[in-house]
Computed example of a mutant assay.
Amino acid sequence: MQERAFPLIFADRVTATAEFYERLGFTRWRQNPPEGEPTYIALRRGTAELAVVSTAWPETQYGSPAGRGPRFEMFVLVDDLDMTLKELADASVPLLRAPVDMPWGERIAYVTDPDGNPVALAAAPHS
């Protein structure tokens, strides 16, 4: 058995949310349905995996509606935080918090995905 675990991101805008993560280096490797507007998109970045799933999923799978407001916070390491933030700003991705150097050595900023969920972007300081 292959050992793996990955988060499901509930999104009203499945395609737009998946495209946001593709901008952060994830690649699409599966979607359902295979043609047309997807309700499930699986993404990979190295050994990291995540799936962007329609907010209808929890209701249809186990009878509980997806919550409103932030449904998760994602943390993504990037090589160049300033360049990534510029590319995201050029794509009209909202900045929630400007970069800050943290006491433990990382430089962190917050943006939001298309569904308004916070995404922490972090890079190690330049040596």
Rank of each mutant, 00 (worst) to 15 (best):
A123G: 03
P7E: 10
L81F: 03
R28V: 10
M1D: 01
T84G: 00
A16W: 10
P99M: 08
N117V: 00
R107C: 01
A56T: 10
G69F: 14
E19S: 15
G105I: 12
P94Q: 10
A109I: 03
M83H: 05
T27R: 11
L96S: 04
I108H: 01
E35H: 14
L24M: 13
G46W: 11
G36K: 13
D113K: 01
V93K: 04
E49R: 14
M1N: 01
V93P: 00
V76H: 02
I41L: 11
L50N: 07
V53K: 10
R45G: 11
A16V: 14
L81N: 06
E37H: 14
A51Q: 08
Q61S: 07
A120Y: 08
F10C: 03
R28G: 06
D12K: 13
L81A: 08
D80T: 02
L95G: 07
P70Q: 10
G105K: 07
E49N: 12
A124N: 11
M102Q: 13
T27G: 12
D115R: 08
R68C: 06
D113W: 06
G63L: 10
L88E: 04
L8K: 05
T17K: 02
R13P: 06
N32C: 05
V76S: 01
T39W: 08
V100R: 15
E49F: 13
G67D: 15
E106H: 15
E59K: 04
P94G: 09
E59T: 04
P7Y: 08
R107D: 00
A89W: 05
D113T: 01
S127I: 05
P33A: 08
G67K: 15
R44F: 05
N117A: 00
A122W: 09
E19H: 14
S64L: 12
R107Q: 02
R13Q: 14
E19Q: 15
V14M: 01
L121K: 04
R4K: 08
T112G: 15
Q31F: 07
E35Q: 15
D80V: 02
T39F: 12
R97P: 03
V119W: 12
E59D: 05
V111Q: 04
A56R: 15
P38C: 11
Q61I: 06
F72C: 01
T112H: 07
A18H: 06
D79F: 00
G69L: 11
L43F: 10
P114H: 09
V93G: 06
V78C: 00
V53R: 10
R68F: 13
M83D: 08
F75C: 04
Q61L: 05
E19W: 09
L8I: 04
A98R: 13
Q31D: 07
R68Q: 13
A124R: 13
R4L: 02
R13N: 13
S64W: 07
T17L: 04
I9C: 03
E73I: 03
H126I: 01
R4A: 03
A124C: 06
R13I: 09
R4G: 00
L50R: 09
S54Q: 03
L88D: 08
R23F: 09
